[in-house]
Simulated assay, not measured.
Amino acid sequence: MKNNTEEWVQTKAHGRVLEIILNRPPANAINRAMSRAIYAALRELQDNPDYSVGIIRGTGERIFCAGWDLKETAGEGGIDLDLENDPVHGHGPGGFAGITEFHDLTKPVIAAVNGAAVGGGFEIVLACDVVLMADHAFFSLPEMQRGILPDGGAVQKLPHMIPPNVAKEMFLTGRVMDAAEATRWGLVHKAVPVADLETQAMNMAQEIAKGAPLALQALKEVLGYMDGLTVKQSMAQVKPGGDADCPIYQKMITSQDAIEGITAFAQKRDPVWKGK
């Protein structure tokens, strides 16, 4: 099954997995229209109960995403803040690349990084939940050399994901982080030969999709909710009977799927999820 959300963003359904493919040659650079198209694909993932997991990858073996389409912006005479933030003609409700500000996206997304992820392309990766990377691929944040900052998620997230001094060096120098280093810092789950990347990403997505739909979404919800809380606060609030503002988690606790999962374990059979 194949459904073109837009020419630049293609989607393919694989059972409970929705594959989202960036297809704007030569570099998959992100302009406002592409941001909105990526958001539309992710919105389909979020809203369609048939899907549990998403994968984002680029076409080919050279570039995952080169980030913000600076040539288009330069051709427009610079950054027009009103246009960038316009709800209809700007990047849309998901923010840059359709994902960096899609805060209510509760279904897990795997980044399958098939090549260079530069600037905003790296920020797409940072917005995903699990990252697999081709062993020849790399990350970089060259915004300092463009007179701007990587404020679509990198400056906000990266210092909390790797040692802050390493993140700061990347911001200041724009230098390349290869797959081996990214794996060492824990940014990447695994680096694999590019020929194996799609298969391994799909295998992981299918494995994740075996989980109960509500529980998969509840996990992202509670992790987001606990961000900034102390362990003591998290333990007090995120528990059955706790007062966490996590409606999916609260629904999950007393769901039919929770009963089914326990019953299936006791009966030594695979669970049959209903998503409710």
Rank of each mutant, 00 (worst) to 15 (best):
His91Pro: 00
Asp257Ile: 09
His189Cys: 10
Val192Lys: 02
Ala137Trp: 05
Ile38Val: 14
Ile162Asn: 05
Leu141Gln: 02
Val130Met: 11
Ala112Gly: 02
Ile253Cys: 10
Met177Ser: 00
Gly120Val: 01
Pro87Ile: 04
Ala154Thr: 00
Val155Gln: 01
Asn114Gln: 09
Gly121His: 04
Gly75Ile: 05
Asp257Val: 08
Val238Trp: 03
Gly174His: 00
Phe64Cys: 04
Ile124Asp: 02
Leu187Asn: 02
Pro26Asn: 02
Arg269Asp: 01
Met177Thr: 01
Asp69Thr: 03
Glu44His: 04
Thr199Val: 13
Val113Glu: 03
His136Leu: 04
Gln10Met: 10
Trp273Asp: 03
Ile20Thr: 10
Val238Gly: 07
Val188Trp: 01
Ala215Val: 10
Lys190Phe: 03
Glu169Thr: 08
Asn28Leu: 05
Phe265Gln: 13
Phe96Leu: 04
Trp273Glu: 03
Gln206Ser: 13
Lys251Thr: 14
Ala212Phe: 07
Pro108Tyr: 04
Ile208Ser: 01
Lys2Gln: 11
Gly120Leu: 00
Glu101Met: 12
Ile99Asn: 05
Ala201Arg: 08
Val131Asn: 06
Gly275Arg: 04
Asn48Lys: 11
Val53Met: 06
Arg175Tyr: 11
Asp82Glu: 14
Val155His: 02
Arg36Ser: 00
Trp8Tyr: 11
Asn31Gly: 15
Asn48Cys: 15
Val131Lys: 06
Glu101Asp: 13
Met177Phe: 00
Arg57His: 14
Leu172Asp: 13
Phe265Asn: 11
Ala191Lys: 14
Val88Met: 12
Gly90Lys: 02
Ser234Asn: 09
Ile21Met: 03
Met252His: 08
Ala180Arg: 10
Met133Trp: 07
Asp243Lys: 11
Lys232Ile: 14
Thr5Tyr: 11
His14Asp: 14
Val166Ile: 15
Val9Leu: 01
Pro159Thr: 00
Ala264Asn: 11
Lys2Ile: 13
Gly152Asn: 10
Asp257Met: 10
Gly92Asn: 04
Ile20Phe: 07
Leu42Trp: 06
Glu84His: 09
Asn3Cys: 08
Met1Asp: 07
Leu172His: 06
Ala201Cys: 09
Thr11Phe: 03
Leu214Gln: 09
Gly58Ser: 09
Pro213Val: 05
Gln267Phe: 07
Pro26Gln: 06
Val222Trp: 03
Thr263Gly: 07
Trp68Ala: 03
Gly119Gln: 06
Pro87Gln: 03
Lys274Asp: 09
Thr106Asp: 15
Glu44Asn: 09
Asp104Ile: 07
Trp8Asn: 13
Glu169Ala: 10
Tyr225Thr: 08
Val176Cys: 00
Glu7Trp: 04
Lys239Ser: 13
Pro164Val: 10
Pro26Arg: 10
Glu260Ala: 14
Ala154Tyr: 01
Val176Arg: 12
Gly147Phe: 02
Asn31Phe: 11
Ala236Trp: 03
Thr59Pro: 05
Asp82Gln: 12
Gly275Pro: 00
Phe122Arg: 01
Thr254Asn: 15
Asp245Glu: 14
Asn31Cys: 13
Glu7Met: 10
Ala117Met: 04
Asn114Cys: 15
Gly58Arg: 07
